[in-house]
Amino acid sequence: MVKRIAKCSVLALGLLFIYTPILLLVVFSFTPATTLGVWEGFSFDLYIQLFNNAKIMNIVKDTLLLALFSAIISTVLGTAGAIGIFYSKKKVATTVNVMARIPVINAEIVTAVALALLFAAVLPDKSYFTLLMGHVVITVPFVVLSIIPKLKQMDGNLYEAALDLGSTPTQALFKVVVPEILPGMLSGFMLAVTLSLDDYIVTAFTRPTGFETISTYVYNSIKVPQHSALPQLRALSAIIFIVIIVGVIVANIPKDKKRKEKV
């Protein structure tokens, strides 16, 4: 009994540590006070200000589109890459895997600086393209990593069976292999979106002048004391926290049920 209480309190303290700042921000996003901790009555003022702030709304849209585009590119490139690696000779597979490992293990600042040097050398200026490629570099290895296990689980004879039954390699690929690895592609895609939304450093080094994502905008606003947008960013953060917390919980419920059914 004592043991159980001790265990529970360790977990509770951990969760308290993680969620106190988040909860506080959410709570105080519902009062118009500019400083956190001052309660000036319940209101949606900050949310109204946020939605009327065309600049922030634009940044949110740009951030989401960037995440979407880079995740689409990463998923297409990564799916092809994963299938290619899976069927390649060991030497080729190892070479590609080691190359793909570099952005995963590398410090983000090194990846960012390296890309900035490349772009400075071959392009007149940074552009949306350089930013997009920056995001693909940091996300595509994770797409491949989520697809490879699905390929390993797949029955290797399926593809050959499709060919024997008269389908072309392209048909066999799209009608047999792709449906088998679709869950991996989806989780890879979601992971790519998450990583793109989370990124600051690579974005800062590859973005064209004037282009802001939520990360760069918030970071630059924090540095300015008493920045007028900070209270509104509280509302924005609250929305993002709630959307993600609910989203993750919803996404995990079916997984949980399936696990139970298996048991």
Partner: peptide, 22 residues
């Protein structure tokens, strides 16, 4: 099927290896 590795490999050479060379 193996050729599908080519675009990914090229991408990695172009945007991972060459930048490190820089």
């Amino acid at each position: 099927r193996r050729q599908l590795v080519i675009p990914y490999g090229l991408f990695l050479v172009l945007f991972v290896i060459i930048p490190l060379g820089f």
